[in-house]
């Protein structure tokens, strides 16, 4: 009986420690995704459409978009991304432009368009690595490995 009480105590303590660890990690996971931003734009007539994603696959929300003329360096227009990371900004005329995205947390991305280059690359949504489910899978794997070790030890002791 005593050994069972002891066992319960360990479980409790362990759960406490794990919860604490997971709690600590949650902000870090979203932060870990913010290492790079991919910006994709296309011009349809005089309107610039675009999408922005973090390298983890999440949309870059509410980020500032500034559009500069390449030859004069003047700010032509500005706007912000939606909650889905998309934006559409009308331009007065089609001139070579540089689009700069700033998420306000030190992450920037840019995209340039020259009149001469006709190639307008279709946006490709990056494959999300989904760190969180993989972390959960890792913890489950640890539980399974130690579960086997535990059973093996018990059988050994018996």
């Amino acid at each position: 009986m005593k050994s069972f009480e002891h066992f319960g105590m360990h479980i409790q303590a362990g759960v406490l420690a794990s919860l604490f660890a997971i709690l600590l990690t949650l902000p870090a996971i979203s932060d870990a995704e913010a290492h790079g931003i991919n910006l994709f734009c296309r011009l349809e007539g005089p309107t610039l459409h675009g999408e922005a994603y973090f390298s983890g696959g999440n949309p870059a929300k509410n980020s500032t978009i500034n559009i500069y003329a390449i030859d004069t360096g003047k700010l032509l227009a500005s706007g912000a991304t939606s909650s889905e990371g998309k934006f559409s900004i009308p331009l007065e005329k089609k001139v070579p432009i540089k689009v700069v995205l700033d998420d306000g947390q030190g992450h920037r991305a840019s995209w340039t368009w020259n009149k001469t280059s006709k190639k307008e690359i279709e946006p490709q949504r990056p494959v999300s690595k989904k760190p969180f489910p993989t972390i959960i899978a890792g913890i489950a794997a640890i539980a399974v490995i130690f579960g086997i070790l535990y059973l093996w030890k018990r059988r050994d002791a018996a």
Partner: peptide, 15 residues
């Protein structure tokens, strides 16, 4: 019993 604790700290180290 100690194995249970080891498993928990293994998870914590992993995370």
């Amino acid at each position: 019993e100690h194995l249970v604790r080891t498993a928990m700290f293994s998870s914590a180290f992993f995370v």
